[in-house]
Simulated scan of single mutants.
Amino acid sequence: MDRHRVLFVCAGNICRSPLAEGIFRHLANEAGRADEFEIDSAGTGGWHQGEPPDRRSIAAAAGHGIDISGQRARRVVSADFGRFDLILAMDQDNLKNLRKTAPAEAFGRLHLFNTLALGSNKDIPDPYYGDREDFEAVYTMLLAGCSALLPKAGKLLRGS
């Protein structure tokens, strides 16, 4: 069976996208579907390359039984556009940045996370300058989106 490759993208790959990666992986594991997916995250900027997720993202995930502490930030590279079946941006700005660097043949794989997951054009807000409550709110938004995305991921990916 071919694995479906999903990449979650935010700005620096330390807050939202590592949470999305961890949540989606956790849900796939719980559903017995982990073998179906290759799940990763990256940032459109390289400011935090090699760093672990923000301590507040780690704490939000840990509070729900998910360990993302082993993840390391990386920047989106050109090979990602051919490697991943779905590339999900956390907000419109990062989607625009992806479209600036993606080859035309990859445009069909680029989506706003909430549009694909929940049918909404709402951004997942960046909690970086916020507090614990902001990270918890983002966790809740990502959980809702990842929970909606998992059941339809196979169909979406087979159709692409």
Rank of each mutant, 00 (worst) to 15 (best):
Ser57Tyr: 02
Ser57Phe: 06
Ser57Val: 00
Ala60Ile: 06
Ala60Asn: 01
Ala62Phe: 11
Ala62Ile: 05
Gly63Asn: 00
His64Cys: 00
Gly65Arg: 02
Gly65Asn: 07
Ile66Glu: 06
Asp67Arg: 09
Asp67Phe: 05
Ser69Glu: 05
Ser69Trp: 02
Gly70Phe: 07
Gln71Tyr: 13
Arg72Gln: 10
Arg72Met: 06
Arg72Ser: 12
Arg72Ala: 08
Ala73Gly: 08
Ala73Tyr: 10
Arg74Tyr: 02
Val76Asp: 10
Val76Met: 11
Val76Trp: 05
Val77Leu: 13
Ser78Glu: 15
Ala79Met: 09
Ala79Leu: 11
Asp80Asn: 08
Asp80Tyr: 01
Asp80Val: 10
Phe81Glu: 07
Phe81His: 11
Phe81Gly: 05
Phe81Trp: 10
Gly82Asp: 15
Gly82Lys: 12
Arg83Asn: 12
Arg83Ala: 13
Arg83Trp: 15
Arg83Glu: 15
Phe84Ala: 01
Asp85Ile: 02
Asp85Cys: 02
Asp85Ala: 07
Leu86Ile: 02
Ile87Glu: 04
Leu88Gln: 10
Leu88Ile: 05
Ala89Asn: 01
Ala89Glu: 12
Ala89Tyr: 04
Met90Gln: 14
Asp91Val: 02
Asp93Gln: 10
Leu95Arg: 07
Leu95Glu: 04
Leu95Lys: 09
Lys96Phe: 05
Asn97Ser: 12
Leu98Tyr: 09
Lys100Val: 08
Lys100Ile: 04
Lys100His: 15
Thr101Val: 15
Thr101Asn: 09
Ala102Arg: 00
Pro103Arg: 03
Pro103Gln: 06
Ala104Met: 03
Glu105Pro: 07
Glu105Gly: 03
Glu105Val: 12
Phe107Asp: 11
Phe107Arg: 12
Gly108Leu: 04
Gly108Thr: 11
Arg109Met: 13
Leu110Tyr: 06
Leu110Lys: 06
His111Pro: 05
His111Val: 03
His111Tyr: 13
Leu112Trp: 09
Leu112Arg: 08
Leu112His: 04
Phe113Gln: 12
Phe113Cys: 13
Phe113Ile: 10
Asn114Leu: 07
Asn114Met: 14
Thr115Lys: 15
Thr115Gln: 15
Ala117Lys: 00
Leu118Pro: 07
Gly119Arg: 05
Gly119Tyr: 08
Gly119Ile: 08
Asn121Thr: 11
Asn121Ser: 15
Asn121Gly: 15
Asn121Val: 10
Asn121Cys: 01
Asp123Lys: 01
Ile124Cys: 04
Ile124Lys: 04
Ile124Glu: 09
Pro125Leu: 05
Pro125Ile: 05
Pro125Val: 06
Pro125Arg: 14
Asp126Thr: 07
Asp126Glu: 11
Tyr128Thr: 00
Tyr128Gln: 00
Tyr128Asn: 04
Tyr129Gly: 05
Tyr129Ile: 05
Tyr129Arg: 12
Gly130Met: 06
Gly130Phe: 03
Gly130Asp: 00
Asp131Ser: 10
Glu133Asp: 15
Asp134His: 15
Asp134Ser: 13
Asp134Thr: 08
Phe135Lys: 01
Phe135Ser: 01
Phe135Pro: 00
Phe135Leu: 02
Glu136Thr: 07
Glu136Trp: 01
Ala137Leu: 00
Ala137Pro: 00
Ala137Arg: 14
Tyr139Ser: 00
Thr140Glu: 14
Met141Thr: 10
Met141Trp: 11
Met141Phe: 07
Met141Lys: 14
Leu142Asn: 14
Leu142Glu: 09
Leu142Thr: 10
Leu143Met: 01
Ala144Phe: 12
Ala144Pro: 00
